[in-house]
């Protein structure tokens, strides 16, 4: 263990050395300390903060519910949004309209076909000599019907 004077000699030596261990030792011995009042205040703060940490640790299981709650809320929102979208875009009624239109078109085609056959029958009755033309028209109608 060096004395203070020896430490000085090492510290002040001109050979480039700096007796850090000795200086460190002297340094550590002369360290100031915070006031006891300050330490007391800090201990109180620590106790408060530790209590808060303890409470937050106990409440920790609630975090496991959070994803479940978030998922449920998201599902409800999605369902609501889908319902709203459905009301704004009524797919069923559109399909119904399409089906009705299709039925109407078929009915009109049937009526047209009947009219054509009737007209042909009438033409045949009036002009029996146009057999070839009538056969051609009948054949065309049959093809069209297919």
């Amino acid at each position: 263990m060096k004395t203070d004077k020896e430490t000085y000699r090492y510290a002040a030596s001109n050979d480039g050395r700096f007796d850090e261990a000795a200086i460190r030792s002297a340094w550590a011995a002369s360290r100031p300390e915070p006031s006891e009042n300050s330490m007391q205040h800090l201990r109180q703060n620590i106790a408060t903060q530790a209590a808060l940490h303890a409470v937050s640790t106990q409440k920790q299981p609630i975090y496991f519910w959070r994803p479940a709650l978030a998922t449920a809320a998201a599902l409800v929102l999605l369902l609501g949004a889908y319902t709203l979208w459905q009301q704004m875009h009524p797919v069923d009624s559109v399909w119904q309209q399409v089906t009705t239109m299709e039925d109407e078109i078929h009915a009109e085609l049937d009526a047209l076909e009947t009219t054509v056959w009737d007209a042909l029958a009438e033409l045949e009755a009036e002009s029996p000599s146009n057999d070839i033309l009538l056969d051609a028209i009948a054949l065309q109608m049959a093809l069209w019907e297919d």
Binding site: E33, I46, Q49, A50, A51, H53
Partner: peptide, 21 residues
């Protein structure tokens, strides 16, 4: 300390009391 033990941090504070101050 994070589990609520104040003394645990007080011991750390004590260890760093002089160097930090």
């Amino acid at each position: 300390f994070l589990q609520g033990d104040a003394n645990a941090l007080c011991e750390l504070v004590e260890a760093y009391r002089k160097p930090l101050f």
